[in-house]
């Protein structure tokens, strides 16, 4: 059996699923954010695998950009989390439900 691109994509799908479930289940803001990063990584793996499969360098370039954007997003997101949770006791996002209908 050779390892085809499909295998990597399956792995990426599993990782993505784990990340998605993580967001839905965990309440700690930082951990939720890490699950998002997990999902992004899974997507990166998909890109690379697809790029190999389709013999195109664009896959790796896409990963590059995803990486950059993810980094920027982490910066801002963590700044927000710090700002919001600075003065609260728990790090739970369920605290902030004042925008309910």
């Amino acid at each position: 059996m050779t390892v085809t691109a499909g295998w990597y994509m399956t792995l990426a799908a599993v990782l993505f699923g784990i990340g998605a479930v993580g967001i839905l289940v965990r309440r700690n803001a930082v951990v939720m954010f890490m699950c998002i990063e997990l999902m992004l990584n899974a997507v990166n793996l998909t890109f690379i695998a697809a790029g190999q499969e389709l013999r195109d360098l664009t896959g790796q370039l896409a990963v590059f950009f995803v990486l950059v954007v993810a980094a920027a997003e982490v910066v801002v997101g963590l700044a927000i989390i710090v700002a919001v949770f600075r003065n609260s006791e728990t790090a739970s996002v369920d605290e902030f439900n004042e925008l309910k209908g």
Binding site: A20, I23, L24, R27, V93, D94, F96, N97, E98, L99, K100, G101
Partner: peptide, 17 residues
Amino acid sequence: LRPLQNGFVRSYALSIA
């Protein structure tokens, strides 16, 4: 329909998922 907007980020995430 109002209870759908419960203010919890996670349930919104659930809807998206």
